[in-house]
Design a protein around this nucleic acid. Structure first.
Lengths: 114, 114
DNA sequence: TTTATATTTCGCCACTTGACGAAATGAAGG
DNA sequence: CCTTCATTTCGTCAAGTGGCGAAATATAAA
């Protein structure tokens, strides 16, 4: 129960939804997400650790970066049902579309030095 | 987006999850739910209006009572996907089980006079 | 119409949440 | 080892949430 509620809480914030929808396009690091969402680094980091906590996303060290990607493995029953649903939803949302275009433009070598 | 977030927020509270899982058994009025959850009338009413707002539940006047039941109609894409998932989840949760046993015992003619 | 009672609305309080900047951490490269 | 820089952690603050009791509303019955 507790874990289920935590899982829904993770989905109860527009910025976290935006992050998940961006990660549908490709894995991203904190700086890239920060540049797209226009939030402080620390804020993005907190959102990501929350999403990781309930296993919506996984992180992989890549040199000095951390790549965050959707968890498409199947060991978490909530995640494995909810991520595919989310992927079907909001296909026409203007903000989401804009975010996903930006995903294809951002470059971590430019985003991160700041 | 806004509506989707609101929908997940509605699922982000243990008492609201308990209410939905109780309504899987049968429709209930505010007093019956209040007796099972041991909350104030006004608190239960607020939870119910929130769940109704995002169309997880419907209400029907029945004399001086209001019966709340799950919305099993199919016009809301989020609800029609999420309610069936919720119905599969938490099959072994102790609190949920206790609640559902109580659903079969409460009687609004006893619960409500207080 | 008056009374009883089920529900909703309102105002209040404690706690949580999402935001930030500053400081701490950790890995890469000089 | 020391510097650089991506990320995380910490402290703080404003806004949102869930709880309550009291007052308002609505329906049934007397």
């Amino acid at each position: 129960m507790r874990n289920l509620v935590k899982t829904f809480k993770a989905l109860s914030d527009p910025n976290r939804i935006r992050i998940l929808k961006m990660l549908e396009v490709r894995p991203l690091c904190v700086c890239e997400i920060r540049d797209i969402l226009q939030l402080a680094n620390s804020t993005v980091s907190k959102h990501l650790s929350l999403l990781r906590d309930v296993e919506f996303i996984l992180d992989e060290k890549d040199g000095k970066w951390v790549n965050f990607r959707l968890n498409d493995e199947q060991y978490n029953q909530y995640v494995s049902k909810l991520l595919p649903l989310l992927a079907e939803w909001l296909p026409d949302d203007a903000a989401i579309k804009r975010d996903r275009e930006k995903v294809n433009q951002v470059d971590r070598y430019i985003s991160c030095v700041s």
